[in-house]
Amino acid sequence: MHELAVCQALIEQVERVARDNAARRILSITVSVGPLSGIEAKLLEHAYPLAAAGTVAEEAKLVVVTVPVRVRCRTCKAETEAASNRLLCGSCNDWHVDVIAGEEMLLQRVEIETADEPVH
């Protein structure tokens, strides 16, 4: 269950964003996670309230976008989806492939509420 440690790191980043932007609270946090990051989206969602309790993100909604694994074949150049334990070309079945998506563990977007309406 290293998802709790990942959530704590996430909250620290979000707290930084909140400070830099004088946020009063965080409304939502969007992260993208691929299967090759070693993180389970469901476990991340379970761990999140524990890490967020008592922080500026306490009431924020966590949005987890899961990214499928995609590989590019060095032999036939096809780009296909793959299972994380079968990184083979979906077109020609070759194992000489490069992973082009599915390793992400990224903080994408933070929706914040600041104290006042900005002055124009």
Binding site: V6, A9, L10, Q13, E15, V17, N21, R24, R25, L27, V31, G54, T55, V56, E58, M105, L106, L107, Q108, R109, V110, E111, I112, E113, T114, A115, D116, E117, P118
Partner: peptide, 22 residues
Amino acid sequence: PFAAQPATKGHIESIEVITAIL
């Protein structure tokens, strides 16, 4: 610990970050 804020309506912004969580 973070101090709870009053529930009045403020200004809402969406900030693109894109950093590795770790």
